[in-house]
Design a protein around this nucleic acid. Sequence first.
RNA 1: GGGGACGUAGCUCAGUUGGAUAGAGCAUCUGCCUUCUAAGCAGAGGGUCGCAGGUUCGAGUCCUGCCGUCCCUACCA
Length: 647
Amino acid sequence: MFHQIQSSLQRLVADHIQARYGVEINVALEEPADSRFGELALTVAFPLAKLLRKAPRAIAQELVTDLGALPGAAALEIAGGGYINIRLDRGAYGVSLQGEGGPAASQPGKIIVEHTNINPNKAAHIGHLRNAVLGDTFVRMLRASGNRVEVQNYIDNTGVQVADVVAGFHFLESKNLDEVAALASGDKFDYLCWDLYARVSQHFKDSPADEKTWRHETLHAIEEGRGDLARMGHIVADAIVGCHLRTMARLGIHYDVLPRESEILHLKFWAQAFELLKQREAIYLETEGTKKGCWVMAGSHYQEDAAEDDSKVIVRSNGIVTYVGKDIAYQLWKFGLLGRDFYYRPWPGAVEGHPVWASAADPQPGDAPGFGGGTTVYNVIDSRQSYLQDVVAAGLRALGYTNQADHSIHFSYEMVALSPRACAELGIELSDEDKGKGHVQVSGRKGLGVKADDLIDKLIASAMREVSDRHAGAPEVERREVASQIAIGALRYFMLKYTRNTVIAFDMQEALSFEGDTGPYVQYAAVRARRILREYEGRTGSLPDFGGLGAEAIGRHLADENLWQLALAVSKVDTAVARAVASGEPAHVAKYAFQLAQGFSRFYHDYPVIHEPDLEKRTFLLWMTDCFRRQLERVLDVLGIPVPAYM
RNA sequence: GGGGACGUAGCUCAGUUGGAUAGAGCAUCUGCCUUCUAAGCAGAGGGUCGCAGGUUCGAGUCCUGCCGUCCCUACCA
């Protein structure tokens, strides 16, 4: 509600200034620092003063007189050197709160969000979790704002990382296809590969010769798509993708389509993109220097003040395309610019209840929905890859797709590192070099990291102890369900409370915390709101008819400053989501959710709703409780955090 | 060397296009459970917003320099 009033008043004032003074100016309509100044404040008199060479206070006076009565506003006041403070009509505002939370107006176009993208060769770790939670929450924010969104999870099933694990099975462990297939269909195959990958990496470090020959042979076989090694690659990658989907499903994260690199190769996406890049001279064949024989993109395309010899290799001198090259082809497909498409088949390893499509190399029976062809593309990728993302966007621009390049957005975030204490708890021995640092990078090669499933299990166990303590009589299945919802709340919130460019130094104690600025705190508020309403219904049979509360009664009760501030906080879900979408910061939604929960906790403490003797006041408080409940549920849904039956 | 990010309370972090007296959680200390569950509430202490200049009615926010930390700068991804 706040969001609607804010934007309509903003438009109104801007139009007025345009008509009255003939100037186009950015009208800032902000929330005053102190609530005593009202609900909204205009600072536009200050910049206007400069333009019109007049005192700001005089202009403010003029504006207030000319604007007269604004819809929804009860009063305009001039303060300080030229602020115009706006006080809202509390009764009308309260009534309008009843209709809050309807579906947002649908936005044009289709937004593609690519996230997760974990190499399918080992278990997911906390770094991957940050990516997926950030991506999934951003998707929820966009959908809540009326956007059509397609979620893609790119599967690099033909890369070095998968090849290394295959090499491990084949060369290091001498396992044949059937043996690997048996392991792959077993439990915790991703954990098994986690260890194997670390062992292979160590072996390669010790025996660099093996690294060259084993990796080359495996990679070659996989790219050719022939023989047992290639088959083993598919078995490993497909099984691990299944593990990843199950891990993410535990947190309520799902996907629409899994584009795989194997299809990008087999359907000649790259060949097509290569032709385009050559035709439009976005890349050229290097004829001298260290990159002789490579197809490269000139540094001037993706970097300001690029040195003459700055360039990025797109095709190696041996004819093999780099990852960036493939990514350019993939990015073109996402915008529908490639002139080719995948075939699609339902992914057999999908989580029950959440079907997902995967790319296929051959025509498939049945009707698959259309994928790709987005108007805006967000790539959720950690900030270390910003250089490569710049190259990909530069590729689009160099091909003449300026608009698409501008709508190709690197949704970057900093890594999750391990705090020294976390390392100690995990029994990880640190090198002297690492000891000196504030935190240590997660490393799949070293097997250094916290596995996502382990962390989730730990959180559930911790929540379970608390739940069992409080609800000893409840059935175990039910307690387990509640504990797992609390664990999800804690984990998702923990990953979201930091802004994207903050490095998270992962600390088990902080992640396991259920108090203060945490997910469970917000869940607890929603649970308590529901409980009051349920309790009241249980005692009296039904909730009162809130429609009977007119603007007059609501306005009278909202004259109480405490209650008014709470009602105001309740009405800002859309404001918070809109701001978070505009700034690309899911943390803003988390912050708001926490503040809303704080507001409710205060309300809960200060107003014994059910015990209120006055009938009208009681009805009003129940109405407030219901407003809180509805908005807490809405904002938690955007954060992907469930509301437990009890806590 | 070049490019980028960051530096705010003891710790971990917010701070919306520059706006009114710089916030939260944790930790510490003090109160509050016969009431709709205390995973909660109320209160206290704690700050030269890295340092130095500049821009202006106004700077944690913008510009310059310096100090410090981290990331990137592959014919890996």
